[in-house]
Nucleic acid binder design. Structure first.
Lengths: 125, 125
DNA sequence: TCCTTGTATCGATGATTGTCGATGCCATGA
DNA sequence: TCATGGCATCGACAATCATCGATACAAGGA
């Protein structure tokens, strides 16, 4: 679930130089965006994502993550479920192992939505 | 506090074409980034930021926000304090009113850190 | 000086969350 | 068939959080 809640900026392709935000975010969009941000807003999950991104092949199984992050296996599994439900990672079971991969564009979609509704350019413009 | 916890990408100017993240995020950086993300990861605070960004002059006082967001005045004040402590807004008291402004570059700094550590380009690359 | 008004703080409460140990499930190999 | 090992789920617990009403504070005006 919650996989299609953050399409990569489907709205507001219109003007390019507005100094401020396009318009106030709707309550529903705020809930959806907050849900994804909440999945990111935890040190353990940020480190898990970073470990996966830095891992060989861009994928990692739970057993690759438990050691480096210093948390128990159930806790890591719990965090990975959170990330998967937020659409930030995908789970692929190969044999006994469950490999996780970062969903391309998911994080940048969050950045784009923030920039869109908060009137901030993505870089330091 | 926590104002200098997120300098705009001070690390990893080295190589430019690595397909994945530069390196795994450190535990301390993860805590700092998660703290800022946690300030963003709430529907009410996202809407407050968006209201300020969309408001005339890019600034708004508490009385401008209580009505549109449908929360009590103490709750709005509480959220604004969270945002201010995260370095996302600044508070300027003029007379009886407290005007809030979005800190330029604060949100984009978050995006940059995410892109840096999760190996994702800021756009759809 | 007193009253009004906009904000911030306090205390309380219900809900959510991060973490763990114990346990269950499933695929592989003997 | 049974044992092993990787992973997910369950139940519990402590901590954090979002929200509110009541109240305190501060600035301007009468």
């Amino acid at each position: 679930m919650a996989l299609d809640l953050l399409p990569v900026v489907d709205s507001a392709p219109a003007t390019c130089c507005t100094p401020r935000a396009e318009a106030a975010i709707t309550a529903e969009d705020a809930v959806a965006l907050a849900r994804t941000l909440k999945a990111l807003a935890d040190p353990a999950r940020l480190r898990l994502l970073s470990l996966i991104a830095a891992h060989e092949g861009g994928e990692a199984c739970v057993c690759d993550l438990v050691g480096p992050i210093g948390l128990s296996q159930p806790t890591v599994s719990h965090h990975m479920k959170q990330l998967a439900e937020a659409g930030l990672v995908t789970r692929e079971k190969r044999g006994v192992w469950a490999y996780f991969t970062i969903v391309p564009g998911a994080v940048s979609a969050v950045s784009d939505h923030l920039a869109l509704h908060l009137g901030v350019a993505t870089a330091g413009t």
